[in-house]
């Protein structure tokens, strides 16, 4: 049995969906550009940073959701999920960093912090769904 979906959650999911589509389009476009027509000079820095924009948009959408959500329990559960995501990502990145330094694990690009965060956030979301 379901209650109607919260409008704030619907808006959040739309924003995340659009940001994901934008991410796929931008990552392919930037990859193609750097392979075939690499931008020269200082221009290469902002162009290389373009794929980060949709990921930042997802974090912004999450913040907007927390402001918009009128259901205090759902808001608290999302805050808890964010904290699990953040704590998990910070812990894994810290462990990886030390093992990389002392035991020669391969170097991970820094943007993997976001990837790991999404992984931990997703696992916390699954746990939340199971525990409903």
């Amino acid at each position: 049995m379901f209650t109607p979906r919260s409008p704030a959650l619907t808006r959040y999911q739309w924003r995340v969906g659009l940001a994901s589509i934008a991410y796929v389009a931008i990552i392919f476009a930037v990859g193609w550009l750097f392979r075939h027509h690499p931008p020269a000079g200082v221009l290469r820095y902002p162009v290389a940073a373009l794929p980060a924009l949709p990921i930042i948009a997802v974090f912004a959408a999450l913040g907007r959701y927390l402001v918009d959500e009128g259901d205090e329990y759902q808001r608290m559960m999302m805050v808890r999920q964010v904290l699990w995501g953040t704590g998990g990502a910070m812990a894994l990145c810290t462990i990886w960093g030390f093992v990389e330094t002392y035991a020669a694990l391969p170097h991970l690009p820094l943007y993997f912090a976001a990837v790991i965060w999404f992984g931990c956030f997703g696992i916390a979301g699954c746990a939340r769904w199971i525990d409903r």
């Binding site: 049995m1 209650t3 919260s6 009128g70 259901d71 205090e72 329990y73 759902q74 559960m77």
Partner: peptide, 26 residues
């Protein structure tokens, strides 16, 4: 039902369930 109460309060059914079971204090 929990859904009836949730609609009257303008919250989700999960919220009503969490309050009823003592998992969440409103």
């Amino acid at each position: 039902s929990q859904i009836d109460l949730a609609e009257r309060l303008g919250v989700s059914r999960q919220s009503v369930n969490a309050i009823e079971t003592g998992k969440y204090d409103p």
